[in-house]
Computed example of a mutant assay.
Amino acid sequence: MTRGKGIAIGLVAATAIGLLIAWAVYAFERKTVDIPLPPKGEAVYNPLYALKIALVNDRQRVHSRPYLFDDKHPLQAGDTVLMLADPARLSRRESDALRAHVARGGHLVVQPPVALLDDDADVPLLEGFGVGKHAFIDDVCMQMTAKRDVPEGADPMEALQGIFERGLLCDDRFALYEDAEPTIEWGDKEGYAFARFRHGAGTIDVVATLDPARNAGLRRDYNAALVRQLLQPNWGRGTFHLVYASQMPPLWRLMAEYAWQALLALALAVAAWLWMRMQRFGPRLPAPPEARRSLLEHVQATGDHLYRYGRAHLLHAALRAHVLAKLRRKDAVAAALEGDVQAEVLAKRTGLPAADIADALRSPRPFDAKDFRYRIARLIALGRHT
Rank of each mutant, 00 (worst) to 15 (best):
P47D: 09
P249Q: 08
M248N: 12
H134E: 13
D79N: 00
L37H: 07
D139R: 10
P112L: 06
L176P: 00
S363N: 10
A269R: 05
H322Q: 13
S294H: 09
R99P: 01
D359E: 15
D205L: 08
R99A: 05
D119I: 09
N215F: 02
A262Q: 12
G217T: 07
V109M: 02
R365D: 14
D304G: 07
R293K: 12
R214H: 12
A262R: 14
I376V: 13
L218Y: 04
H241D: 00
D356S: 09
R308D: 14
R166N: 07
H298I: 09
A97H: 00
A193T: 15
A85Q: 14
T15N: 10
P66W: 04
A97I: 00
A175I: 10
P74I: 04
S246D: 07
A13S: 08
Y26E: 10
A88F: 06
L55Y: 02
A301F: 02
L230W: 14
A201Q: 14
S363P: 02
Q229R: 15
T302S: 12
Y192Q: 12
R365Q: 15
A291I: 12
K330F: 06
K370I: 12
G4A: 15
R277V: 09
P212W: 04
I163Y: 04
L226P: 01
L268D: 07
L314D: 11
D96I: 05
R308N: 13
G106D: 02
T145K: 10
A360M: 02
R219A: 15
S294A: 15
Q342S: 04
R228F: 05
D34E: 15
A318F: 06
Y309V: 15
D171S: 11
G202Q: 03
L346D: 05
H63G: 03
A291P: 04
Y222A: 14
P112G: 04
E297M: 07
E185M: 11
L51S: 00
G202D: 03
I17C: 12
H199A: 14
A213I: 01
K52F: 03
A43P: 01
A159P: 00
K5D: 13
R375S: 03
H298R: 15
H63S: 06
G200M: 03
R373S: 11
L263R: 12
A154K: 00
L264T: 14
G187V: 06
A159G: 05
R104T: 04
A16G: 06
M144P: 03
T386W: 04
G339Y: 01
L126N: 09
